[in-house]
Design a protein around this nucleic acid. Structure first.
Lengths: 102, 102
DNA sequence: GCAATCCTTCGAAAAACTTGGAAGCAACGT
DNA sequence: ACGTTGCTTCCAAGTTTTTCGAAGGATTGC
């Protein structure tokens, strides 16, 4: 069994790489339809095989979904997963201590 | 020079480990005063040396600060850094596409 | 001073991640 | 059918991370 903690740690690890973070942001900004792998490559400028590894990592972590359209491969952000992740970080903030932090 | 992208990727990588994510959450929930290393250890139950490495990683990434009080070492969350990081992920969301995601 | 407590650093081995050329596969145009 | 385009998988080397026992400060209490 994978705990919520492990799953979110995996998601954060997936985002914890400059290329992958750049990819996520590009795709997040692309909106619901997502962006084609080629467009992503044009934007972040890394070899195709390296990009493909990173994209797979992000999909495996559940941060992106992929859909094919002809020979194109579109990647779209999993906004819900991202939302859940960010709120997890702040969950029960200051519950046990003082301070107006959140 | 370290870009904003690299810095935030480093922060995410620091959070991208089950033990470190557990540490951050424990400390976030501890409030402004933070928590002593010993209390953290009691909560997540890993060897002291391993814990120390993880704490150092989180401090280096700027997610925690540390302060000593006698022989105790207190760690407190950098709420600002966490806030900046989470908003970075959503920056310019859907700017280039359609969709009501954020 | 001496022991005890609290934590960090050293060191070294195993595991995971990162990188990218080459080769492969699938869809499209001609 | 054949080349082209768009992307993925194979492979292999190099780097980083992760782990934790043992040894090393630093500070407090006696």
């Amino acid at each position: 069994m994978t705990t919520k903690l492990d799953r979110h740690a995996g998601e954060l690890a997936a985002l914890g790489h400059p290329a992958r973070l750049a990819i996520l942001r590009f795709v997040v900004q692309a909106g619901a339809d997502g962006a084609a792998a080629g467009d992503i490559q044009a934007h972040i400028d890394i070899p195709a095989s390296t990009l493909s590894h990173h994209l797979k990592r992000l999909v495996d972590a559940g941060m992106l979904t992929s859909r094919s359209e002809g020979t194109f491969q579109f990647y779209a952000a999993q906004y819900d997963a991202l939302r859940t992740l960010t709120s997890y970080l702040w969950e029960d903030c200051c519950k046990r201590g003082k301070g107006s932090c959140c």
